[in-house]
Structures are given as structure tokens and as C-alpha cells.
Amino acid sequence: MNGDREMAYAMYLAGMDVKDVHMTDLISGRETLEDINMIVFVGGFSNSDVLGSAKGWAGAFKYNEKARIALENFYKRDDTLSLGVCNGCQLMVELGLVYPGQQNSSKMLHNDSGKFESAFLNVEILDNNAVMLQDMAGMKLGIWVAHGEGKFNLPLSEEDYNIPVKYSNDGYPANPNGSDYSAAAICSDDGRHLAVMPHLERAFLPWQWAYYPAGRKMDEVAPWIKAFVNARNWIKNI
């Protein structure tokens, strides 16, 4: 896992108290997530993506009693949010955390190119129900992608999913992985659980963007910080 620090900082900057939790903490029972309001599955690789991205990570949840129960209890609560980015997105899909009960409604596949894709590209935020992104609808933003298995395989019709973020163009490499419906993210029906492939946590400051609008380079923060601020405000208002 290697996207932990930038994620933690984006959350910290948005006003959250951020706790560093390792899988081993959940497996051992050192951490139960009981006093936690938002869980973020961070990006990067886990187990070098051996046997499929996030497969090993998902296995650790499925087959370790304490970790499984901590997670189940977390998702049973209605005062919680979750976010998975990149490898974390793959984990949420693998564990069915976005659309629980709907087996095989979504899958993450290898990029069409069969290789890792690295790009700074354009996405659009659509009208959506996601707690983190709702008031960002209409924005067209730059964002980083860095993944080998980022293709959303969404076999049902588009209305069956909540797709808050799309790649701005469907042609490769603007849609870097061949995702159905150009989807860059999917969200649970209640808007609380968001799984997104691009790295918003590497684009919350202007200088992190490979291209930022001329004349705005002295902005303190870039628009993606809103997503984290929204999460923080939602938790505060529980």
C-alpha cells in the first residue's frame, strides 16, 4: 500500500482527525473501528496485485474473524462513510461494499491495454448522490490515474448504478482502462460509500496537478479538497 500519506493529509487538511490503521490492527483486534466515522481504503498496490488487485486484501477481511466483524459492524451503522481509492476501490468492489447483496453487479478488470496506465486526465462530476461529491456536480477537473486493473465492468444498464464521476472522453487513453460508461467511480444508493479509481488525494493542491489553469496557481487548494470537506461536514452534522 503506498497512497496512505497523501490521503491522510487530504483528510487532515479538511479538518478530520486521521488515524493510521493497518490490516494487522484489525486482524489482531487492536482496532475495532467503533469510534470511527469514516474509513478510507487507500490506494497503491497490495501484495503486488498477485492473484488480482486487492484479492489478497479482500481475503484478509473475508477469512479473519475480527477484521470481518469490525468491517461488518462499521457498515451496519448509519453514521459512517467510506471511500476507496484505486486499490481501495478494487477492494470495495471485490468485497461488495458498494452494492451489498448484488452479486456480480460490478467487477474490476485489467485495463484494456493490459498494462499499468499513468495519466493526468480530465473527469466530469455528474449529478450524483455521493456525500462527498454531490455539491461538486458540474465540475470538470483534472486528476491522476495510476493503475493496472481499473476497468469497471458494469454488466447492468447504466441506471442500475450511481456513477458520480466519468472520464471526460470515452476514447483511449482519455478513458484509460476501457471502463463501461466511462465510469471513474461508483457510489452506494445512500451516497455514503464511494469507490473511485483516480487519485483525488493526489490532486487536492494546485501544484499536484500536471496542468492547472493559468492565473490560479496561487490558489491555496484545488477543487478536490471539497470532497473531503463535504465528508467532514457530513460527519459533523450527524
Binding site: M7, N47, L121, N122
Partner: peptide
């Protein structure tokens, strides 16, 4: 695919906020 951004009136400023509890979960 030239970049084409729309910030929808985003100010670029960050207001100071109080803290709430969250966890970043990772696995190696």
C-alpha cells in the same frame, strides 16, 4: 483530448475547520 476544466465558482481558498474522527486503512 485537451484539458478542459470548469471549477464552478470554486474559490481556491480553504476555511479552517474543526476536527472529526476518521481512519485511513492500509494493508501491505
Amino acid at each position: 483530448f485537451e484539458h478542459n476544466f470548469d471549477f464552478c465558482g470554486f474559490t481556491g481558498r480553504l476555511a479552517i475547520m474543526a476536527l472529526t474522527l476518521t481512519a485511513g486503512l492500509r494493508q501491505e
